[in-house]
């Protein structure tokens, strides 16, 4: 499941992307291309700029310079909802859900709406509810659909966030530490889910510190250090790359 013969297509790509906070260069001249149809992993030590990179790509913060393109279209500086509608879904490192809505509503919200008509339609459309339930079932929390999202466990909230992302039917799914703060049984479930969804044709970019998960899950690994990629390749190669070892152990 690592290498294929077909030439990789471009999915998401950045050119010389930079973003500083005060004097800190969080993302520094990062030129990265993710492989379409694959599970891409983005790893790197704490503070290496992975989350900031995510935020720049998804429009949550404006990069200082550089560009972002998705499937060949320039999406630099577009607002987050337009990037979401272009087909990029994301999760947040500290899982973000709508705490005072029910689990089902959390998923229903994410449905893409077009046009005034559909906006004024009832929020509880039967087809949509069925679709939302389908995603809840997929992540395994459909039995909680009537609970308030604030009341379910953190691991379940992570699954809920994923279900919400899926509801918007993105082609590219960016997950910021899906296994962070989650118990091992759930990590296994999330890994399986990512693999299944990938098999259905969705591209993934996963930021993760759990190396076991990264190595077993990903097809392509990009290593960040101090805001820029320092190595990339199949997991087995990256694992033994001296630069990567240095970034993780050195300084």
């Amino acid at each position: 499941m690592t290498l294929t013969d077909a030439p990789p297509r471009e999915s998401l790509a950045t050119v010389s992307l930079s973003k500083s906070f005060g004097g800190v260069k969080a993302v520094d001249d990062a030129t990265v291309t993710f492989v379409d149809g694959k599970v891409n992993a983005l790893i790197g030590p704490n503070g290496s700029g992975k989350t900031t990179f995510f935020n720049c790509v998804t429009g949550m913060i404006k990069p200082d310079s550089g560009s972002v393109s998705y499937r060949g279209n320039d999406v630099t500086g577009r607002s987050p909802h337009r990037i979401a509608r272009a087909g990029i879904g994301r999760s947040f490192q500290l899982c973000r859900i709508f705490p005072r809505m029910t689990v089902l509503e959390n998923v229903l919200v994410a449905h893409r709406t077009d046009g005034l008509r559909s906006l004024l339609k009832g929020a509880r459309n039967d087809d949509e509810i069925e679709r939302a339930r389908g995603y809840l079932r997929r992540v395994g929390i459909d039995h909680l659909e009537r609970s308030e999202a604030a009341d379910i466990s953190y691991g379940q909230q992570k699954l809920l966030e994923l279900a919400g992302v899926l509801m918007a039917e993105p082609d590219l799914i960016m997950l910021d530490e899906p296994a962070g703060g989650v118990n091992p049984a759930l990590i296994g479930r999330i890994g399986t889910l990512i693999r299944e969804l990938n098999a259905e044709g969705r591209t993934f970019v996963v930021v993760e510190h759990n190396m076991e998960m990264v190595m077993s899950l990903s097809d392509h690994v990009i290593v960040f250090d101090r805001g820029r990629p320092i190595a990339e390749g199949p997991p087995s190669e990256v694992q033994t790359d001296p630069r990567v070892l240095e970034a993780y152990l050195g300084v």
């Binding site: 429009g59 607002s79 987050p80 979401a84 809505m101 919200v109 709406t113 339609k121 929020a123």
Partner: peptide, 25 residues
């Protein structure tokens, strides 16, 4: 009770998250 209203309530809860889900907040 509309889809529009649900989007507005999502803004009340977490505006950035609503944006990230594709709602033109």
């Amino acid at each position: 009770r509309s889809r529009f209203g649900m989007g507005l309530k999502a803004i009340r809860e977490d505006e950035d998250k609503a944006e990230a889900l594709g709602i033109p907040t």
